[in-house]
């Protein structure tokens, strides 16, 4: 790894920018994502910054099952993100479809549509679990396991 790449890698791990997208969630996971950014939990102390546009983000925090209407949008948002990019499935719905499995307008978990790097289950996920998940993802970027597939 050259010096430049090392700097890029260092800044990516120390300050990942995230975007949050609700692809049909019940809001439970979304308010917990916001809660994890506010004073009690304060995800920002790990350098995580919430961004408004996918073009600025490294990590997509996706919550909720994928509904038929949102599917194209989710894909579009993912394609707008710059490489390398990571998707974190937040909540049981995002992991598998959860309680909404089998409903006619629900496609299932996020991994039906996008490659997912980390799954954080829970209905809703507690902010502690979100922090744990994000920190683990960052650690795996720093010391990638042998056969990790990034993005």
């Amino acid at each position: 790894m050259g010096a430049i790449q090392r700097i890029v890698q260092w800044s990516r791990v120390k300050s990942p920018w995230v975007i949050h997208f609700n692809s049909g969630a019940c809001n439970g996971c979304d308010i917990e994502i916001v809660a994890s950014l506010t004073p009690r939990y304060d995800l920002e102390r790990f350098g995580v910054l919430l961004k408004g546009t996918p073009r600025h983000a490294d990590v997509l925090l996706a919550s909720g099952p994928v509904t038929r209407q949102i599917e194209d949008r989710l894909l579009r948002i993912y394609e707008q993100m710059a490489e390398p990019k990571f998707v974190v499935a937040v909540g049981t719905c995002a992991c598998t479809g959860g309680v909404f499995q089998g409903l006619y307008n629900v496609k299932g978990g996020i991994d039906r549509i996008l490659p997912v790097s980390a799954y954080i289950p829970g209905c809703p996920v507690t902010p502690n679990a979100i922090i744990d998940g994000v920190v683990k993802l960052l650690a795996s970027l720093e010391n990638p396991p042998k056969k990790a597939s990034a993005g």
């Binding site: 099952p65 909404f100 006619y104």
Partner: peptide
Amino acid sequence: MGYNHRGVEKGAEG
């Protein structure tokens, strides 16, 4: 609207 439509009402019947 409709991006968040999951079909809960129909699901509840089953």
